[in-house]
Design a protein around this nucleic acid. Structure first.
Length: 316
DNA sequence: ACTAAAGCCTGGCTGC
DNA sequence: TGCAGCCAGGCTTTAG
């Protein structure tokens, strides 16, 4: 799923495609996607707006406009942008799209990790324009940007740019992991306030911005910390080590292109995506030997999701 | 102030 | 083979 590295890669590629472009029209097809903005207002704020910059805050994608507003998008699980040929005609939700539509789709965002691993072509099809398109953006170069979201978890919101940092989605986020504000002291004192297991605290966006299940699990393994350890019982030294590994794993994932994939049939081959899942050391490796000590990796449920760890390397 | 759990949502997969 | 039910998972809301 898109965590910080995936969103960072999306922001970079989306930026390359739409920066300096102007939205000549926009349509919010599913009002629930942007609950805070009435559909007509959503469309009106985007019409005629030029994209100054595409950025990211935590897992939120930010499209900064030249009219003093910013479009915030959270991809959640299955949200993705497709950049398509403007000639492509809209397809009813219920109608299966023509095969060649995908051929003309320029993927600026791709696909959930498992879809790649299995290489399941049927799943690719579900990302096709028309199937789960909840918002459309017409660009001044004749191209079109679609937002699709199979599971309807995604969120969009247009806010005044000056209020961005205090907006509902971003207001309570922890500092960016790569910023100076995300210091050992900040992290250590954040952890001191929670008695919950460290793994669950890492998923709390007010403690660390941008970590999801995969990178939280990976960072704990690299720092040799047991995911069940109460957060407030980490020493300053171990908290510092964990902070270091969080930053390292995020940096490495970004450098590798994250886990996002583009359509392999992309004609221009401008973006082939990353393969960071090949670098996972514990995630999705239940029963397989730990890379460090060969002990079989374990999985258990924490909160509502899977935690993977090495019982030997991560004893405490 | 903190914590746990339900709910949102679809579709692949498992097991009867 | 059919189908109910589990699972994936970020985040908000609700209840404790």
């Amino acid at each position: 799923m898109p965590e910080l590295p995936e969103v960072e890669i999306v922001a970079r590629h989306l930026g390359a495609l739409i920066k300096v472009r102007t939205f000549i029209r926009a349509q919010l097809r599913r009002p629930n996607l942007a609950l805070a903005n009435p559909p007509r207002q959503f469309a009106a704020w985007l019409k005629g707006a030029r994209v100054d910059e595409v950025g990211r805050r935590g897992k939120h994608l930010l499209i900064h406009l030249d009219n003093g507003r910013t479009l915030i998008t959270h991809l959640r699980m299955t949200g993705r942008f497709l950049y398509v040929d403007g000639q492509e005609r809209a397809i009813p939700h219920t109608q299966a799209p023509a095969e060649n539509l995908w051929e003309r789709t320029h993927p600026c965002v791709p696909v959930f990790v498992r879809q790649i691993i299995t290489g399941d072509r049927a799943r690719y099809k579900r990302a096709l324009p028309g199937l789960h398109t909840h918002a459309l953006f017409w660009l001044d170069n004749g191209q079109k940007l679609l937002f699709t979201d199979q599971r309807h978890f995604g969120m969009m919101m247009i806010v005044r740019s000056e209020e961005l940092e205090n907006s509902a989605p971003l207001g309570k986020l922890a500092p960016e992991p790569f910023s100076a504000d995300f210091s050992d002291e900040f992290f250590y004192h954040s952890l001191r306030r929670s008695r919950r297991p460290i793994k669950q605290v890492l998923l709390d966006q007010t403690k660390v911005a941008g970590l999801g299940n995969i990178y939280a699990v990976e960072a704990l393994h690299r720092a040799r910390i047991n995911p069940r350890r109460p957060a407030h019982r980490l020493s300053l030294a171990r908290a510092a080590a964990l902070r270091r590994e969080i930053i390292a794993v995020l940096n490495e994932a970004i450098a590798a292109g994250s886990t996002l994939k583009a359509d392999p049939r992309d004609l221009e081959s401008r973006y082939v995506g990353g393969a960071y899942e090949e670098s996972w050391r514990v995630y999705d490796r239940e029963g397989q030997p730990c890379f460090t000590c060969q002990t079989p990796t374990r999985r258990f449920r924490q909160g509502a999701r899977s935690t993977y760890y090495c019982p030997r390397c991560q004893r405490s």
